[in-house]
Simulated assay, not measured.
Amino acid sequence: MISVDGRETGMDINQFQNLEEILLQIMGGGELEGRVVTDVFVNNESFSEIYPHQAEDIEIDEIKSVEVKSVPVADMALDITVELNKVVLLMDQGARRVAELFRQADDAEALEVYQDLMDVTRDFLNMIGVLRGESVAKGTAAFDASADEISNLFSEMVEVLENEDWILLADLLEYEFVPAMTRWKTVIAELQESFRENDKE
Score class of each variant (00 low, 15 high):
Glu45Phe: 03
Arg196Gln: 09
Glu193Met: 12
Phe177Asp: 01
Val40Gln: 12
His53Ile: 04
Leu125Pro: 08
Asn18Gln: 08
Leu168Tyr: 05
Glu100Gln: 15
Thr9Pro: 13
Asp171Met: 01
Glu83Met: 14
Leu168Thr: 05
Asp123Pro: 03
Ala110Met: 01
His53Gly: 09
Leu89Asp: 12
Asp123Tyr: 11
Glu45Arg: 04
Gly94Trp: 07
Phe102Asn: 13
Val98Lys: 01
Asp75Thr: 13
Gln15Ile: 01
Gly139Ser: 14
Ile60Ala: 11
Asp116Leu: 08
Ile13Tyr: 10
Ser46Arg: 06
Leu117Glu: 05
Leu161Met: 04
Arg35Ile: 09
Arg96Thr: 07
Arg122Lys: 12
Asp61Lys: 15
Lys138Ala: 04
Met127Gln: 13
Val160Thr: 14
Phe195Pro: 09
Phe154Thr: 13
Ile167Trp: 00
Ile128Tyr: 00
Glu201Val: 00
Asp106Tyr: 13
Glu164Trp: 05
Gln93Thr: 03
Asp199Cys: 00
Gly10Asp: 07
Leu23Pro: 03
Ala145His: 04
Val88Ser: 08
Gly10Met: 04
Thr81Ile: 05
Glu8Pro: 00
Lys64Thr: 14
Thr9Asp: 10
Gly129Phe: 07
Thr186Lys: 02
Leu23Thr: 00
Glu62Leu: 11
Asp148Pro: 06
Tyr114His: 01
Asp57Val: 09
Ile188Ser: 08
Val136Ala: 14
Ser70Phe: 10
Glu83Ile: 12
Glu21Trp: 06
Thr38Lys: 05
Gly129Tyr: 06
Ser70Glu: 07
Glu49Ile: 04
Val98Asn: 00
Leu89Asn: 08
Asn198Lys: 05
Ala77Phe: 02
Leu168Cys: 02
Phe102Trp: 12
Trp166Ile: 05
Asp92Gly: 01
Arg35Tyr: 13
Val187Thr: 08
Asp165Glu: 09
Ala74Gln: 13
Phe143Ile: 04
Ala55Thr: 06
Glu162Tyr: 05
Ser194Lys: 03
Ala137Gln: 12
Ile13Trp: 08
Leu125Gln: 09
